[in-house]
Write a protein that binds this DNA or RNA. Structure first.
Lengths: 125, 125
DNA sequence: CCTTTATATACCTTGACACGTATATGCCCT
DNA sequence: AGGGCATATACGTGTCAAGGTATATAAAGG
């Protein structure tokens, strides 16, 4: 598994990354949202972590995973020489998504799992 | 081989695509520039063609391969939701490359076009 | 402590795919 | 027509990665 491209070739891993794009998630949350067996999730997370796509912090028995930017930048960097094939289209997409972002960022999500004020004092491992 | 990501997971295929980013190439030209055996090139080109990354036209006994944009756009489309992780960096890259483009395209006042006006009357297959 | 919850790892099996070698197809030229 | 060049395909083989099942580690809470 030498290159970032092999990492994102696996559909489940792409799904995990997409989930993490919105916010950090615990293994269990990923497991439930993507309906995949826990060992599968853990194994893919390991691959992603070793490739630098994600990092994790410990919150009690849970582990919270979040994205790291560098490998994705590497993918994009490879695409840049081809940009005359896609740049126009992406600009349009970005404008569209920017509008959506504005619309949705105003509503916040109600947190659960309080268990004492201000949980999630994570220690990184 | 269901997704575009599996297609570009293979390093030789990425190399071929990068070659074709500059201009169309025959199988033999690819073979020589990338120093890979001819059957390997042909097989990878087949995969790329069936996935829509390239198309070919016939020029006598040779086949000229060139890029098609759609699959690359698909890759980029997947990356868009992650763009806060890389957009700044790509903008910089693009500005830099744009300057390089300007520098080289202006130099090209005198065109080349050898071998009798308008060679390569390809028929698509 | 003992149990429950959360996550990680080990082992095995299976299937896909990339490669090498050999051969087929097809076009050009004399 | 026949030989040579350019490209495609067929076949056999080895490797490696993904999934399933079982088990290990570790923290929490009663």
């Amino acid at each position: 598994m030498e290159s970032v491209f092999e990492i994102i070739a696996e559909p489940n891993r792409r799904a995990i990354l997409s989930l993490l794009a919105s916010s950090q998630q615990s293994v269990g949350e990923i497991e439930r949202q993507l309906r995949m067996p826990q060992p599968t999730v853990s194994k893919h997370l390991r691959v992603l972590r070793e490739a630098g796509f994600v990092e994790s912090t410990v919150d009690a028995q849970r582990r919270l995973y979040r994205l790291k930017p560098e490998p994705l930048q590497e993918v994009v960097a490879w695409l840049v020489p081809f940009r005359r094939f896609w740049s126009a289209r992406v600009d349009a997409l970005e404008r569209h998504l920017d509008r959506m972002d504005e619309a949705t960022t105003t509503k916040r999500k109600a947190r659960k799992r309080p268990r004492g004020a201000n949980r999630e004092r994570d220690k990184s491992e």
